[in-house]
Every structure is written in structure tokens, then in C-alpha cells.
Design a protein around this nucleic acid. Structure first.
Lengths: 226, 226
DNA sequence: CAACTTTTTACAATCTATTTACAGTGTGTG
DNA sequence: CACACACTGTAAATAGATTGTAAAAAGTTG
């Protein structure tokens, strides 16, 4: 169940937001001032926070900053009546994830909430299986198949693939791989990564001499493409 | 939190400025003379400085000049009672970013502050992506498209573009590029930059022989235009 | 120890960056 | 306005860096 915390003092606004969120299927918690909001945000397990900037007791800006300094990373969507650019800058500087200016359309707001939830969900969900081309990977069981046939991958090869896939679309540098997969701080020149990549390509690419999935990006590293 | 340093001796003026800034949500620090101002500006982390020209101990002009020679680049907004053009010229010459003549409307002053903060914030926010004309760049993923089609840019080409875009509208000299993108201290004559620019134009300009985005500024360098 | 994985080494292949060379363009001066 | 000189564009050649990969060496595991 997705839970939304609304920190807002204006009763009409609260009502509108609450209704829309509940209609959307979210559970809603409401705080009427900054202090209460801060408390709820710190104690309840909340998926996203809608935070008004102008609040009694403690401004939204301060609520936001305090949460962040406490290490709470729940997505925060700031709401404000003023459309001044400055607020936006301040809000984002202080650790808000997004910023909506009143009056806003409920539709837009809900879309933004959805976007943030989606982004957050992506980060949390751990991959336990992944399929691309003819290859199926099961990271939980450490099994792999290619075109239905069992494929033998070593533990390290699995970890490299997992890392690449987790960052698919992005460039992954050799250093990054050494850090994250090997746990080395930083090594002098080594061709270890390249060798593993070459072996992986032999195993998973349809045509290893013309890689489709593990692409080298000259001077930077590799990029995994589904 | 945005912090404003007010360097001003006239009590009424201090009061007015402080109130307005605080109302705007800024944290305010006050210095009553040039010396104190200089010290606070050098030691506290300040986002913008409101600096009176007429000050005890040390004139605003001198404070400004000293800060700049110390390498402190905080935006400075000069305030003066005199409306003589000379002061303005001197102020800007000495490294002030903007100049407001008393009497000024608080509204205008706040607008200018906002403008400077926005500009400063823009510089801090690291670019993830940028679009101009038909070209879309994603600096995070190192991907580029032109008219929707994948566009192949080398790592260096990306870095050059990133630098130009970060300084869009400004003239960027060849030396600047060599320093910032290549990391060379200073090289004798080399046509390296020109060659890269030429290649970039081939790739990103609608008509490379008639550049719209990477403009040559004769004798100075290049200028990127959106 | 045997089988297997990982790392290093070494060198070829590939790709990018830089230099070179020269044509073209802009600027200032007489 | 013409001329010289400085600056810029760019193709082609060259240098240099990066990557691929086979094979040997080292390390691991049961």
C-alpha cells in the first residue's frame, strides 16, 4: 500500500489533496503544521510527502531540511502559493525532489506523485531475474540459460552482469566495476575487467565479435543494453 | 537555506533590508562597517552580498575589490545613495555583479537578488541533460540523439559540449577549453580545439557550414547558443 | 592434487586525438 | 580599396591511447 503524507494547514487544500490521493488508491496521513509533519514523517513509514511551504509552527523549507539532515530520504514534493523562482531554487537546494506551484491541476500533481513513486520503486526492487535476447538469468538461484540451454557462468560473471544490468543504459566504468563488484579501492592498470567482459561476451552475445548487449564506450567503460 | 550578508551602516536601512530578506525566507547576517563586512564575507558561507558604497572604516568599493582579489566570487549587489554614473562604472569595474541606486523599491531589490541567486543556482546544478535544436544530450548516460536518431559523440566531444553549454552565451576561449576539458596548463599553438569544434559542428549543426549553435568569435574563441 | 576460476602478461587490433598543411576568411592599415 | 597578416576551417596523415583476447601464471576449492 502506498502511503502519502500531506503536510498542509489550509483545510480546503487538505480535503482536495486527500480525496484525490485516496481516489488514486493511496493511504493518506495528514499533518496540519510543520512540527506535526516533521514528526509524522520521521515516525510513520511514508512513501511520499506533499509539503506546503507556508505552514504554521515551522516552514516547509525547514521541515524539508530537517528531514534530510536526519537522513530521511522519502521523496518530497513541495507545494507553494508563490510562483517565485527563488522558492523553487531554495526548495530544491534544501532537498525537495520536486516543486509544484499553486494553483496546480490535480492531474498534474498526481502524475508527478506517480513519477516519484515509480522512481523510488525502481531503486528498491532487487532484481532476481532478468531476460534479454535469448538469455535468461536468475540471480537468486545463480542459473542462466541461453536459447533454453543451460549456460555456465561463474560467480564473478554473474556479479558483473548483475551490476551492468542494474545500471543498464548507463555507462559503467572499469573503476566502478572494480569498486562495486571486486571491492577494490583502486587498482593500477589491470586488464582484468576487460578479460571478464570478453569472456562474458563469448557466453552471452549472439555474435561475440559484434556485441549487442555489452557495448564498449571508448575511454569510458561499458554500457549494457537490453 | 539562502544566506544574505548585508554590509550597511545606516540603521534604518539595515532594518528595512533585513526584514524584507527575512520575509523572503533568507537567513540574514549584518555587518556595520567595511572591515566587519570583509571579514564576514570571507569567513561565513554567504550566497549573496548587499554592499553599501558609503561605509565607515573601508568603502564598499574597497571591500568589493578586496573580496575579488581574494578569489571570493559571491554575487555582490552594490547599493548607493548617489546616482552618479561614475559610481556604477567603478562598482562594476571593481567586481560587483549589480548596482542599485537609492532610493530603490524593495520589490525591485528582491527581484534582483532572486535573479542573482537563480543564476548562481544554475551554475551549481549539474547538467544531466540538455536539448537544443534537434539535438538531445544526456550527460549522465553519455547518449545523444539528433532528430530522434542516435548520435555518436566521443567522450571528449561530450566534454567540450558540456563545457560550452555550461557557459552558453559566453565566449569560451581555446585556452579555456584546453585548461578545463583537457587539463593542459597552456599549450603552444595547436589546432586541436578547432578540429574538435569542426567535428562537433559536422555532428550537431543543422548546416555545418553555417553554424547556428557553435559560433566562432573571431580572435576570441567560440560561443554556444541554444 | 585435479579441475576450475581469476588475474596477469603481452601484443595485435582498433579507435580517437593531435598534428600538419594549406585553403579560406576576417581585420586593420596605408 | 587593396594588401598583408592573422586567424579559422578542415582534410589527411600520424601519433597515441584504449581495447580485445590468447595464453601463461596464480589462486581456489573440494
Amino acid at each position: 500500500m502506498v502511503k502519502v503524507l500531506i503536510i498542509e494547514d489550509e483545510p480546503n487544500m487538505v480535503l482536495g489533496l486527500k480525496d484525490s490521493c485516496e481516489y488514486e488508491g493511496y493511504e493518506v496521513s495528514v499533518a496540519r503544521d510543520g512540527k506535526e509533519g516533521l514528526e509524522k514523517a520521521s515516525t510513520e513509514k511514508v512513501d511520499i510527502i506533499l509539503l506546503d511551504v507556508m505552514l504554521p509552527m515551522m516552514s516547509g523549507i525547514d521541515v524539508c531540511r530537517t528531514l534530510r539532515t536526519r537522513g530521511i530520504e522519502t521523496p518530497i514534493l513541495m507545494l507553494t502559493a508563490r510562483s517565485q523562482e527563488t522558492d523553487k531554487v531554495v526548495g530544491l537546494e534544501v532537498g525537495a525532489d520536486d516543486y509544484v506551484t499553486k494553483p496546480f491541476s490535480i492531474k498534474e500533481l498526481l502524475a508527478r506523485i506517480r513519477a516519484h513513486l515509480r522512481r523510488a520503486a525502481k531503486q528498491v526492487v532487487e532484481l532476481d531475474s532478468f531476460t534479454f535476447g535469448e538469455v535468461e538469468l536468475n540471480f537468486k538461484k545463480y542459473t542462466a540459460r541461453k536459447a533454453g540451454k543451460a549456460l555456465d557462468l561463474s560467480a564473478r560473471e554473474f556479479e558483473i552482469l548483475r551490476y551492468l544490468i542494474r545500471h543498464r543504459g548507463e555507462i559503467v566504468t572499469r573503476d566502478q566495476l572494480l569498486d562495486e563488484v571486486w571491492g577494490y579501492e583502486s587498482n593500477p592498470v589491470t586488464r582484468t575487467v576487460d578479460n571478464h567482459i570478453a569472456r562474458l561476451r563469448q557466453k552471452i552475445e549472439p555474435d561475440p565479435s559484434e556485441p549487442r548487449h555489452i557495448i564498449t564506450v571508448h575511454r569510458l567503460g561499458y554500457r549494457f543494453i537490453e
